[in-house]
Design a protein around this nucleic acid. Structure first.
Lengths: 312, 312
DNA sequence: AGTTATGTTTGTCCTGGACAAATCATCTGC
DNA sequence: GCAGATGATTTGTCCAGGACAAACATAACT
């Protein structure tokens, strides 16, 4: 029996180049090549030119590995594991993760999650809007959106939710929140807060939640969207004479870069402008000099109150 | 006179690592190193460990070079040019670029652009909302947002607008459009259209404009936000039984990847699902088999009408 | 003038080496 | 028994330099 492992001919059909895998999985080319060197996985085929071609099954497995790593597993173990062991790990923690926190209206939230699961777009949108009206923006953010975001994130981590289902939820939530924020009276009271995130940081929900709460408190919020280069954040802070620059980091943001980045931005910005950071990516992070770490939404409100205290 | 070009000691103050430069400029590490090898620019310093450290001035210059390259200039020439020549090039085409197109209410659009320039956030938002009410969503998209987006893009290309000013415009426009779309009656008429973009493609305005127009025509639009991995687009298309998947590519999307990516996605997706692509990134692109290229907003509407013709 | 052949530019990929930061394992002393 | 120090291992990122194909420009030819 002849076993062809080498270069097949018309195999580029639906195989991923290393660039495509990097784009889709978020794993850098360097990491992909290093894993191959060290662990023997992934083991892509090669095209006529010696360049890597990854079969979809391996890309799928890479997605799974990435997910498990975000949960704290180490690559060395994961690479050695079999497919069965991997899917075992994926569903394992899902039981213990039922972290119903006190005071949460779990039933209603589960209902919302159910709408995501059956892909009922308009149903989800209407349910969200209804809750917004019923609870008011403040409560809505704290008691519905924040826990829902957490639940969706956890469900995704455990493979119970597809990526596109998470996107669906995020997109509808963004719409409802933006709609509510636009409806607020045009405020021009201090402090003036500039909200954005650095490049490679695209998650915007946290930013929107904070903006809603701050705007409700009468702060002047200037949302610049995501992905601002550092030098542009500096310029924007000066141009708007911002009192505070608030940045959001998701848990997916590489910890390695965080410290240096914040220090650098702190040096670039006017000393009078405060730098506040929040989100899952800075949880437990020791703040550098002149950087304030916000541990959650309620803490953010406290920080705002404290700022006003200082400047009154 | 002694000239210190080498390793200074406390120089990491506000100097960028190669990762930071890649993040901020969008130029890959490979390109940065290659340029240094070939052209002698950038010429970063080195830290104690031999790793590159880019002074802010060089990062600034890289930004400028990137902008000029997007306008069609070639790297070889740009690297050789002096600072003065570069800024000359930047402002050069700005005169000829006054491309007032027939039928555009140039005055009013200039006014909106003026609001962006003076950073009047609420003024911009109100002006946009006012125009939306006056013109109606259809006209608003075609005659205000589309040309404004083009003008802002051109102004940015010519260095007349900072990045953060462009973000400001984009963010407010997103809000107004989303607000309008949410307000449309929940439609469930065919076709069912899934709107998204691939990873690394973050520009969302084009997607929103198309969504607004399609939703107005009574199509069932499912917006998934940006940055969907290909395998997830496939899953979403199947789960939603989408008739059409519409993707947006900005002009910044690397042309090299485009052909392969579309071919691959076409193979992954159900044959019954059509694949429509639009945006500046596909202008003049020869479509592969089974991929429809939309040259503009009006062409998109025509495509929708044609689809209904075919399926009636 | 249009088209083909040739040369140049430019980005991406490759290999393999090196190293620092994070993490784990082990040991020590209170 | 356990906090903390020490050493080993794991893991990601960086570097250099070579190679090559696709895009682009230029010259030659019908």
């Amino acid at each position: 029996m002849v076993c062809l492992v080498f270069v097949l001919d018309n195999m580029n059909i639906s195989h991923f180049t290393i660039t495509a895998v990097e784009r889709d999985t978020g794993l850098s080319k360097d990491v992909l090549r290093m894993w191959e060197r060290r662990y023997g996985f992934p083991a892509p085929e090669r095209d006529a030119n010696g360049e890597r071609l990854y079969p979809p099954a391996q890309v799928e497995r890479l997605h799974l590995i990435k997910r498990l790593m975000d949960q704290g597993h180490r690559p060395g173990k994961l690479m050695a594991a079999s497919d069965a062991e991997l899917s075992g790990l994926a569903s394992q923690r899902m039981a213990q993760a039922r972290t119903a926190r006190p005071g949460e209206d779990t039933g209603a939230l589960e209902n919302l999650l159910g709408l995501v699961r059956v892909h009922d777009v308009t149903g989800l949108l209407q349910a969200l809007q209804q809750r917004l009206i019923r609870e008011g923006l403040h409560q809505f953010v704290l008691d519905t959106i924040a826990p829902m975001t957490r639940m969706v994130g956890e469900a995704w981590e455990h493979g119970q939710l597809e990526v596109f289902e998470e996107h669906l939820f995020t997109e509808q939530t963004k719409r409802v929140l933006r709609q509510a924020i636009v409806g607020l009276p045009g405020t021009s009271r201090s402090p003036r807060i500039l909200l954005t995130s650095v490049p490679e940081e695209q998650h915007v929900l946290g930013l929107l939640m904070v903006e809603a709460l701050f705007a409700l408190e009468g702060a002047e919020c200037i949302a610049l969207g995501t992905q601002m280069p550092l030098l542009e954040i500096q310029r924007a802070a000066e141009a708007h004479q911002a009192d505070i620059v608030a940045l959001s980091f998701s848990a997916a943001f590489p910890r390695r870069q965080l410290g240096g980045l914040l220090q650098q931005l702190r040096e670039l910005m006017p000393a009078a402008t405060e730098l506040w950071v929040g989100g899952g990516g800075v949880a437990g992070h020791t703040p550098g000099e002149g950087v304030e770490v916000l541990g959650g939404l309620r803490e953010s409100l406290a920080a705002l109150a404290a700022w006003r205290e200082r400047h009154s």
